[in-house]
Design a protein around this nucleic acid. Structure first.
Lengths: 152, 152
DNA sequence: ACCATCCGTGGACGCCATCGACCTCAACCT
DNA sequence: AGGTTGAGGTCGATGGCGTCCACGGATGGT
């Protein structure tokens, strides 16, 4: 992970569809060299994948909610996690310090669907209680923060 | 936005670096047709961009926190937002229903940097109080949820 | 029935991805 | 010191891809 790798990561974070040739131009190496570096960043796990950033409303997911979860005292955290993993509406899942063990970010199409999700969460074994906050609007999300100050 | 468009969106959400030729094979059209469709999805704002998904620890951002913000009674929300926008550590910013007007997701390298961020937030004009929860681990994040059930 | 429009296909051409051969340099061993 | 080794780069070649263009078939309005 030298400065060129960080530069590549940065470029791909801002536009994952850049060609290797273009990346090569930007970092001042040849295309095969960049190809090999990116390959190593992928296999080493630094680059986990490439995702299109989609306007949620456009695909019928206009409701965003953040849900805190309090676990039962004797709950098996792995089982709870597995249950959450089977709910596709849960886009993100953080294991938190504090009374609420989990913080979930969920995205659904309607308030009715959110209600159904909350009911399912409360029925999940190991879940003691849920606390849901609705996002009125998303100002921004997953903004990539610059990782390499010296962009040559 | 027909079924083929949804299919394309789905494919690009899971791998934004797929070639047009490959996309064409998967949806059963020619490459130029796919090229044009994707172009329209981009200009219409459905596809906002393409991002590499980076392991945060690998780029020195091992600490994730979620921060609730209570605004002053007379605060100018736009000014507060602008201040947040200038803090690159804030990766996501939701405007919420409830006492806490904003929910921020921030990512920093160390607890010390988190402390500095919280101090800066509390000093920001319009911010009455902050409530920070630290994520001990991220189970998953921004998992794309399937948007087109019939992947014919 | 006609025409305009939309959306697709197929062909062409230049650029890109990717492989292999070779080069350079630094580290290390003897 | 000199030789060896390995990592990581360049260059050149080739097959596939991106992208432009001309063309064609369905659809809907008049």
């Amino acid at each position: 992970m030298d400065a060129i790798d960080l530069n590549l990561v940065d470029l791909l974070r801002n536009n994952a569809r850049l060609s290797y040739a273009e990346l090569a131009r930007q970092v001042g190496l040849s295309a095969p060299a960049v190809h090999e570096r990116v390959g190593k960043l992928e296999t080493s796990g630094v680059l986990r994948g490439y995702r299109a950033d989609v306007e949620p409303e456009a695909v019928g997911l206009g409701v965003t909610a953040l849900i805190g979860i309090v676990e039962d005292s004797g709950a098996d955290t792995d089982d709870v996690l597995a249950a959450f993993r089977n709910m596709p509406e849960i886009e993100s899942c953080y294991f938190m310090a504090g009374v609420e063990s989990f913080l979930l970010k969920a995205r659904v199409g309607t308030i009715a669907e959110l209600e159904q999700l909350i009911v399912r969460l409360n029925r999940t074994p190991g879940v003691a209680s849920t606390r849901t906050s609705i996002a009125l609007s998303t100002k921004w999300e997953n903004r990539p923060q610059p990782v390499s100050p010296p962009a040559a």
